[in-house]
Amino acid sequence: MATLRQIRQRIRIARNIQQITRAMKMIAAARLKRAQDRVMAARPYSEKMQTLIGTLALASGSVEHPLLQVREQVRHIGVLLITADRGLCGSYNTNIIRRCMEFVQQYEQDQIRLLTVGKKGMQFMTRRGYPSVQHYTVPMSGPTVAHAQEIARAAQEMFLSEQVDEFYVVFSRFRSALVQIPTVQRLLPIEPIAMEDGRVEHLEFIFEPSSEELLRRLLPRYVFNMVYQALLESTASEHGARMTAMSSATDNAGKMISTLTLNLNRARQAAITKEILEVVSGAEALKESM
């Protein structure tokens, strides 16, 4: 059995760890709140933009646009993997990376052109033989419009210059602090969403300029918005996962402390009993020898 000193030290260590995890939980909770607000605020724009593209695609019939062009032969695949820079967020990184590995393993290794956001993903994929062609750093406080623009521009350039024939984003969709869904989404070529819910019936729209021209202007923004949305969703997911992980770490530390305290008291009581026994039996021995 551990000595009293050892147990006391272990309690102290558990307390220190608990303090750290509790602080991390608080920080994650505060960041989550902000990130969550941003995702929620950004969703209407994405949704409305999809509807608008649907309307335009419907009105203009078959549109010729390089960003819509589906290539018959797919030689190279661009993949943007969005993970966190840091760990201690439960299975957040692992889940996305696993999803990403499942996806890239459908192809030959040399077909993949990987772009990364987040150190964890980059490090893991590099070890697995998928070096990151381009790495982007997004601060913990969340992505800005400029980050998304830079990445969206790079993705479009790779696609248009035929370095890649399809481009996918692997990220974590935010449902709640407890639920994040690793998602693979095709970014390019863009698939115009067919509006079948009847909301966009064949209205005689006036287009100014023409619907083709409008679509041409809208598509690059759509690509940007998909990247931006993915970054926002990932940031919120990361903080949610970290908050949950740190919350259960704090609880576990608390449990450990109470078990150790129980052991400590038991050991202390045992020591006291032992001492009394020694004193008593010493006294008995003295009495007998007299």
């Binding site: 608008l52 309307t55 335009l56 209205l203 005689e204 729209f205 006036i206 287009f207 100014e208 300029p209 619907s211 409008l214 202007r217």
Partner: peptide, 18 residues
């Protein structure tokens, strides 16, 4: 609008513009 300012009142015809 890109091609000049345009006013919209209720019951405007369906329109999409930049």
């Amino acid at each position: 609008g890109v091609q000049g300012y345009l006013g919209v009142l209720a019951n405007h015809a369906p329109l999409v513009t930049e």
